[in-house]
Design a binder for these strands. Structure first.
Length: 489
DNA sequence: AAAAAAT
């Protein structure tokens, strides 16, 4: 459960891993890698920091440069030497060289952190990690607003940044990470636990709904992951956390966390309680223009990694639509698709909780096994459902926007928009669209997205989404099962 | 419209 201690969670994980057959191969690989690292760091010339046992990334610029630059307090545009991704990198300190690392060793991480990185099966940094890690680990700490497509390793990047700054012997919260939903907080927590499992003293607290602590004490966990409402309570009313001691503040899915129609109030209230020198890290696959501007206003002096519009979509995800005339026809089309989408796993998105529960019930009546997940369910139930889906015990998940962002289940090969994503004014929600289809095509895998259109109005919405991303969404005939299975494979 | 709170 969410309240479990760090140690317990790690024990459980290890028990699970031991039951896997390829354990020995994995362990040997980790050992070899870490031995290699320890050797090189002892033979290399040691800095004062290393002598004290602290391994830091080399400062990106000399102190005098930095002092001069901080006066300018201005962003200068540089071009990243990078021919595969069209990204803009805006550096806080334009005099410092623009770094990107090609290996985790170059980061000079503490050995137990590097061990955690390799134990998770990461061999080399992804594109966003290459660029973001040197910025995040620089001394003194610098803020970062970073954009990178779904499934490209943002979580691992900011988790590594938190773990590199945490001091496990100090028994109070030092790193705070906010997630927009309960399920995502649990998922990110697992990544923190896995990557940090070689720090024996380190503990993680989950500040999420349903995790009730005894009143009147401070918590000793060094890292806190949570959802905005609970975190705010823990920091203010309940005083479990002393926000003044937080060194790193991460906003995952940052655009929705600071958007007016999102979690803005709570996130900003939490941010205001933090010390002025707290490092702020904002990550998302999408930043709508106005939100991007707001982010740069609330984050002092940030480094910036931004995608060009044409690079936002992933080409590995094929997008289609099916044309229907009513909701019942959409349902029929979906039933036709069911066989094809259950080859691997699928997620079906609805606009409301009501539609989601209706659809799940109707599909069940037709004899199709589906799971339902929405915010009206109890957290215990939600945790159980997402767990079953992760384990592959459920092939199809009918859900709302609660699962639109961040949820990482590798086996998901199809995303279906039973309802297209629209905002409260009925306009297309391009950001949510991108996040939803990004539940498939994780880490370079291929994926399929199918949009169900049932009116002129929804066709118009889809056309506007196409125009926004300048990406063709082709028609699919659900009567042509051969064609569908070909695509779904 | 959904999500997010020990209120």
């Amino acid at each position: 459960m969410a309240t479990d201690s760090w140690a317990l969670a790690v024990d459980e994980q290890e028990a699970a891993v031991k039951s896997m057959t390829n354990l020995q191969i994995k362990e040997e690989k980790v050992k070899a890698d870490t031995n290699g690292i320890i050797k090189t760091s002892t033979t290399a010339e040691k800095t004062d920091e290393e002598e004290k046992g602290n391994y830091f990334w080399m400062p990106l610029a000399r102190d005098e440069d930095r002092a001069a630059q901080s006066l300018l307090n201005k962003l200068i545009r540089s071009n990243l030497v990078d021919n595969t991704n069209q990204v803009e990198v805006l550096q806080r300190d334009p005099n410092s060289p623009l770094y990107s690392v090609k290996s985790f060793e170059e980061l000079r991480l503490k050995p137990q952190l590097l061990q955690g990185v390799y134990a998770m099966g990461f061999n080399r940094p992804s594109k966003i990690q290459e660029n973001a890690l040197p910025m995040m680990l620089a001394e003194p700490p610098q803020n970062l607003i970073a954009q990178s497509q779904s499934g490209t390793g943002k979580t691992a990047a900011f988790v590594l940044a938190m773990l590199s700054r945490v001091e496990p012997s100090d028994r109070y919260p030092q790193c705070l990470c906010l997630s927009p939903t309960y399920e995502l907080a649990l998922q990110t927590g697992k990544v923190i636990e896995q990557m940090g499992k070689f720090y024996p003293e380190l503990k993680l607290a989950y500040a999420v709904r349903g995790n009730k602590l005894e009143r009147g004490q401070k918590i000793s966990e060094q890292i806190v992951i949570g959802t905005p409402g609970t975190v705010l309570d823990w920091c203010s009313k309940l005083k479990f956390i002393d926000p003044k001691k937080i060194k790193v503040f991460v906003l995952d899915e940052a655009d929705v966390m600071i958007a007016t129609q999102g979690h803005q109030d709570q996130s900003i209230r939490i941010q205001r309680m933090l010390p002025r020198n707290c490092q702020m890290l904002l990550f998302s696959a999408t930043f709508e223009d106005s939100v991007w501007k707001f982010a740069q206003k609330v984050v002092p002096d940030p480094n910036v990694i931004k995608l060009k519009r044409e690079e936002e979509t992933l080409d590995t995800i094929k997008q289609y639509y099916v044309l229907c005339s009513s909701r019942d026809e959409k349902f029929q089309a979906l039933c036709n698709l069911y066989g094809a989408i259950t080859i691997a796993q699928a997620m079906i998105f609805c606009h409301t909780r009501k539609t989601a529960s209706w659809l799940a019930a109707e599909l069940s009546k037709e004899g199709h096994q589906v799971a339902l997940l929405s915010g009206e369910m109890m957290v215990e139930q939600r945790a159980a459902v997402i767990e079953r889906f992760r384990e592959g015990k459920e092939k199809v998940l009918v859900t709302t926007n609660v699962c639109a962002r961040g949820i990482d289940v590798e086996q998901v090969s199809v995303v279906i928009n039973f309802d297209l994503p629209v905002d409260k004014d009925g306009n297309p929600d391009n950001e949510t669209y991108l996040h939803r289809i990004g539940r498939t095509g994780r880490f370079g895998k291929r994926g399929l997205a199918v949009n169900m259109v049932d009116s002129k109005h929804s066709m118009n919405i889809l056309n506007r989404i196409q125009e926004h991303f300048n990406k063709k969404i082709e028609r699919l005939d659900t009567d042509d099962l051969d064609e569908i299975e070909k695509i779904a494979n």
